[in-house]
Amino acid sequence: MSYNAARPNLLAAPAVLWLVAFMIVPCALILLFAFFERGVFGGIDYNFNFGNFARVADPLYAGIFLRSARIALTAAGLAILIAYPAAYAITRAPASRQPILLFFAVLPFWSNYLIRTYAWIVLLNREGLVNNLLQALGYHGEPLSMLYTEGAVITGLVYNYLPFVILAIYSTLSRLNPELIEASRDLGAGPVRTFLKVTLPLSLSGVAAGGVFVFILSIGNFVTPALLGGGRFQMVGNLVYDQFLSANDWPFGAALGMVLITLMIVLLMFQAHMTARASGETKGANADA
């Protein structure tokens, strides 16, 4: 056997061990819990059945799932709508200025997630900055109740995940061969049609990556809905959190978690598929450049 044949596997061993110990095993345990029942005094009754999954389908919980999905989808959509023009503008800037623009786009990331979310409370509450500003501008009605609404939650999610989306879209746009845009113009398409028929289709993998990212992190998020949605606002993340820490119903919490994880895996596979398709295309486009 040659000296390097086995080595790549050995080099991967620490990462594999890490994943097995802290990802595969816990997931398998959660999956297992999902098929048992809550004991009378908490704990787990090892009584195999599908009852927890039936409960997930209960309109009460299914409704929370659907609302979470709607919020996550809205957040992903808004993030894409805001990030795309920003990423596009950055790729059009002189190459020497692009790193600094990207730096500013990512800057919020360097502060703590909680602090960034609390900042929105300061901005949105009834005596907050936004209401004060409105009054200074001549608005004398009742202060707006913006905090503890679905809108506040979506705003917080979009704000927190926007840099990821800008980066994801920027990375596909900046890899686009500029001669493709010129070729489209040369063949008779104006700037708008060139964007719709060439630039946009070829940057969809970045849009999908950013969108899936926001959706997955949003649908499972429990910090933002807890802080900006107030107590009366529940998303799947809060529900799972409550089952484990308040209701002490680990099996039901596990079932909810498994459904959530399955949904995320499906979406990630979709995104991987988009990326694989796009990488084949860019390879083809740049091979002779």
Partner: peptide, 13 residues
């Protein structure tokens, strides 16, 4: 008039 690009610039999609 039309231009044939050095990189060919074929639309990959």
């Amino acid at each position: 008039l039309n231009l044939m690009f050095q990189s060919y610039a074929l639309f990959p999609h």
